[in-house]
Amino acid sequence: MGYSKFFIVIPGLAFIFYLLDQFLPNFWMTLLLLFGINTILAVSLNLTNGWANLFSLGHGGIMLVGGYAAAFLTLPVSFKRDLLDLALPSFMVNMQAPFLPALLAGGLLGAAFGTVLALPAMRLKGLYFLLATLGFNFITITIVENLPQITNGPMGLRQFPAHTNIWWVWSIAILLIYLCFRLRKSFFGRALIVMGQDQDLAEHLGINLLKYKVYAFGLSCFFTAMGGILWIHLILNLYPKVFGIHLVFNVVTMIVIGGLGSISGAIIGAAIITGFVEILSPIEEGFSFFGLFEVPRLLGLTTLMLSAALITILILRPAGIMGRKEFDRSSIRRILGALRLKTKE
């Protein structure tokens, strides 16, 4: 095997991306991109909340930080210089960076803030840690809203170049998924999982908690920030309010529905939530059913249905759809075996 499989998989994926890019209708393309972005957010959140059992609600703040950092780099000069009067360093105002450096810069800044977020984890456990990270989320939003000279305050930023496409989103998503599956089988991933289960014992077995907590948060926030940047360059505006508890709740719902601690679960959860939100929100606005009758506006429908779905799944499968298991070769074999038994009967 070795690395030869990459020579098949990568061109194959590239070909699929090309076909989708060419022939997929707009609505479905947007759905696919949102699914990809949600996958990035959910799988990276799963690193901390699922594996390491450091339940963070601060990832919205991380997306915000990464998003603004990238925005300052990718926004057109005319908008930055003429329409906004931001107190940014002049080199930042007078340049428009390509997407990749903006993505990396935002990601790295997100990772840096993630390590800051990991610091309370040294002293706090469980619910207390959760509250501290929630506080981080509120603080970042409040700061950004109250610094109009730098961030344009609650007015947010607009006129983003539409950089996000299937190549960026799904390359990063697949890279992240591959990375996580590799990590699951490595010392690093196992150390996180073990730390999540029994922190004291993990330390006795020689796992340096500080090191692994910082690594987990750094990696998770790097990808979360990139997910945020991709999202901004898809919806083409940036308001600090959007990154509040509502967004974090959505991503947490994804990994809880899918099964905390399962990579495949996070992907399944992302698919379900994306479908739910994107298909229900047009209905929420009310529409006319082929001119036959009017569907009234049902504001709040999405949130309601989402919560109902969450409750239903947690009653039926308390550990989430996948539990802590993964969908891999052995599960495919199991499913095939079950099918074969059924056909014999």
């Binding site: 196992r190 073990v194 289960q197 014992l201 330390e203 020689g206 908690l209």
Partner: peptide, 27 residues
């Protein structure tokens, strides 16, 4: 710190076993 002491060559088997249930024996 506990992990440094473990690194010096102290193995510890806790009371009540506390194995990692969702990992295999090998893991």
């Amino acid at each position: 710190k506990p992990h440094s002491i473990a690194g010096l060559g102290v193995g510890y088997s806790p009371e009540g076993r506390r194995i990692f249930g969702n990992l295999t024996a090998y893991e």
